[in-house]
């Protein structure tokens, strides 16, 4: 399947884009991240959370949605 992936803040600086479509056949978030680390090795040491369809999910969550987002630490307010 193809997933829309969004990047923000420090993460978008590393990927040098704010969104992209990634073809993906694995099942869960951590498998997806392994794939992403091959493309962007320096993501591996960074602090971020993953949201699926606009809700935060854990590393072992199954990928079911069409949109993932990598969110660095929040800085609102």
């Amino acid at each position: 399947m193809t997933i829309n992936v969004k990047y923000f803040g420090l993460i978008a600086e590393i990927t040098t884009c704010e969104k992209e479509r990634i073809l993906f056949t694995k099942k869960n978030v951590s498998e997806f991240l392994e794939l992403l680390y091959l493309k962007y090795p320096s993501l591996k040491n960074k602090d971020f959370q993953v949201a699926q369809n606009q809700e935060l999910v854990s590393q072992d969550a199954l990928i079911s949605g069409h949109e993932l987002a990598l969110l660095p630490p929040f800085a609102g307010g």
Partner: peptide, 26 residues
């Protein structure tokens, strides 16, 4: 205010006077 700081995905790029930057963390 505490809920906003903890739960809302807002990101802040702190821009210094010399135009370098760092990313703010709550």
């Amino acid at each position: 205010v505490e809920a906003i700081k903890a739960d809302v995905p807002v990101f802040g790029k702190e821009i210094f006077e010399d135009e370098t930057h760092q990313w703010k963390v709550n």
